[in-house]
Design a protein around this nucleic acid. Sequence first.
DNA 1: GAAAATTATGGTCAAATGTCCATATTTCCC
DNA 2: GGGAAATATGGACATTTGACCATAATTTTC
Lengths: 192, 192
Amino acid sequence: MLDEFEIYLRAHTHLDSADITRIRSLAAPRMLRRNELLLREGEVCRHKVFVIRGLLRTYGTTADGSEHILQFSPEHSWTLDVESYDKQQPALYNIAAIENSEILLWPKADFESLLAGIPRLRSFSQLLISRNIYTSRQRLLTALSATPEEKYQEFVQSFPDLLTRLPLHMIAAYLGISLKTLTRIRQAQLKR
Amino acid sequence: MLDEFEIYLRAHTHLDSADITRIRSLAAPRMLRRNELLLREGEVCRHKVFVIRGLLRTYGTTADGSEHILQFSPEHSWTLDVESYDKQQPALYNIAAIENSEILLWPKADFESLLAGIPRLRSFSQLLISRNIYTSRQRLLTALSATPEEKYQEFVQSFPDLLTRLPLHMIAAYLGISLKTLTRIRQAQLKR
DNA sequence: GAAAATTATGGTCAAATGTCCATATTTCCC
DNA sequence: GGGAAATATGGACATTTGACCATAATTTTC
């Protein structure tokens, strides 16, 4: 019987059953409790991570202690600190669970051998990387050019499902605006 | 005799002379005048571009006509609209020369055949992509978290050489702050 | 179920930022 | 070289935004 990850791979790639089984077999499942850290700034990111269920966030902290969210990783998405993972050096960012989550972990060496041995996994991987680059560009442009209200609108459009799962202060931390500004926007929109 | 591009490849890769010559031979040189557009929003990005001399910028325009700069590309850097290039679809961004510039252009098909035939070019290419991802992340975090003054400081640190080559309004458009705010910051720093 | 923690919202005020305008200076280009 | 364009700066003002505080409502946790 196929587990949820295997169904995901089937739906999004052209990998055959043998490869899917092989990929799955090298992953270690793990549960994360709400607020539990998966990766702490300064640690080395040693695994590739797939989120089966739940919701994670990747965030950086600034000198004054405030947190800024680079990415949300809901079920059926991948996450890691790329730079730390690639170079096996201390991470600049934290990854933590927002909800109780269920994840799969591949040690870097194992995942690399999978990539080396399975061309279709390699191209799928590159597809994900490309998408990431495109959306990052778009997000940067938004961060540079949009008003807080426009940023919020774009977020609502892009992630309608996350709206109800996230506390507002995290949305604010993702958009780069203050919680106050965000509640003001929402209030103003209610009155229309 | 080696031209400037060949010297660059020699210095930054382990490619041998034959490969370097082959890569170079497929590129078309082109001059760009100050303010000339290399790629206009809506066009398809058909080439990979290396900047031999001069300075380009990649920017997006918003509904109100304002410009926001995603990237500066000085001599010895590469540029293109990734998404448009990859998928051969209309570009979301513009690329234009800030200074009179000298560039090399590879048609996409040619560059792909080079990548397919030269493993070391492939890994060099991936190295550049990785770096791009790392700096983009960092830039996003800065855009989300830093004050205008901190953004400016970071820019000065990162690109001291560009400071004197760019008009202030472009630095402002890169940092996502108004020209007014930027001049204020500079005045405040002069008085210290 | 109850205490504790988290979350959403609001008020007040000060500071930061942007827009619009004018002007002096510098640079560009024919 | 000279006219035109681009650039840097400043003033005035309105608006936005954030910081700090309090409070009510909701959710979590044991």
